[in-house]
Amino acid sequence: MKKKQFIPLASGIYINYAILGMATIIISQYSSNFQKMWNTNLAGISTVISMIGIGRLITVLFAGDLSDRIGRKPTMIVGMVATIIFLIGLALSTSMIMAAIFALFLGVTNSFDDASSYPALTDAFESRAASMNSLVKAAMSLAQFVLPFIVAVAPDAKITLILMAIIIAVDIILIASSTFAAQTTKPAATKQKIAAAATKQTNNRPKMAIDGMALIILGFTISFTFYVYSQYLPNFGSTVLGLSAGTAKGLISWYAISSLCSVFITSVLVTKIRPMYLVTIYSAISLLFLILLVSAPSLLMIRITSIVIGFFAAGGIWQLGLTVLTQYFPLKKGKVTGYYSFATALTYFVGPFVSSFIINDTAVSVLRVFQIDVGVTLIGVAIILVVLLRNLKYHFI
């Protein structure tokens, strides 16, 4: 089947993820607007954001199995319908409780979209799966770059939410009418070849209790670094630095455009440098600039740090960590990917939930949230160093 037949499918997926990228940060971008609509404060906003993580935690472990059983298309459409419920729900919410309930649906979206979209692209573009999948992240980053400008033009959150819901509704029609490739399954003979290759590769095998667990926890720390940073970046700008609302919200554009560039640059670097080394370097650089930011906050420093975090923490390092994990356990790719994704889903709840007990309208409270981000990133650096040293000693890969 000609690849051109799958172009509408790919286009629909990228449009879907562009809206998802906006939806991920829209609560923080319209924070002051939502505080008035829902009669709450910054702590309440954090609680609503944390519910996204709960929705993802509830669904992440069975969404993949459902995608394999009922097919990519219906699974994807379920995720897109959940997006519409989230967007319209936020627009109609009059309290924090209502908003928190609707926020659960964006977590459902994350699980169902990831479980269907990435496999659908891989099935349709087998020879170019990596590059086609990397464009998903590019679509999200580009949309997040644009969102602050949309917020400046349309300060009423309801208008933006409704327009996004309309785009998703049209996109559902595009996806529903698109051709999907047949789902691929790996035959037993191929599994035997993988097992033979793994055995031949080295007599030393990574231990799930040590190396596997470390890399799964790394999935949490990597996600925590960029997710907490992106969610509370506008608060840092307005509260700690005293920037205007427009300038503070615009800081996310530095982060997003850097993340977009990283997607393409990292995809080239990974062909020349081993993923494990890139994860180590990227994590260390992110940690350094987070420390510099909380030690000496300034407009210049936060712009530089936003570029650094966008590039080194949000532009592809998560995928690199997953690559190392699946290289370590080639016969358990599905299982370890599920664990890794679950750890990431935990971030979407733990980060905002913990922050809700700390953050308020004071600069000190916002700085404490970023200090926690530094601490978690430091743990991530320590973990990848342990994994790296064990690999150098035992030559796992």
Rank of each mutant, 00 (worst) to 15 (best):
K2G: 10
Q5H: 14
G12S: 02
I13V: 13
N16G: 15
I19R: 10
I26N: 15
Y30S: 04
I45W: 05
I49M: 13
I54Q: 03
F62S: 04
F86M: 02
F86D: 00
L87C: 02
S95Q: 05
F112V: 08
D114Y: 15
E126H: 13
E126F: 03
E126V: 03
A138W: 09
M140R: 11
A143V: 03
I150E: 00
D171S: 09
T184P: 08
T185D: 11
T185N: 12
P187T: 10
T199E: 14
M208Q: 08
D211I: 07
I217F: 10
F224R: 06
T225C: 09
Y229C: 00
P234C: 05
G237F: 08
S238N: 11
V240M: 03
G242H: 05
L243I: 11
A245W: 03
G250S: 15
I252W: 10
V270K: 14
V279Y: 05
V279P: 03
T280F: 15
T280G: 12
L292Q: 09
P297D: 06
I304G: 01
Q319S: 15
T323K: 13
L331R: 07
T337F: 06
A343M: 06
S365G: 08
V374Y: 06
L378C: 09
G380A: 08
V381F: 02
V387F: 01
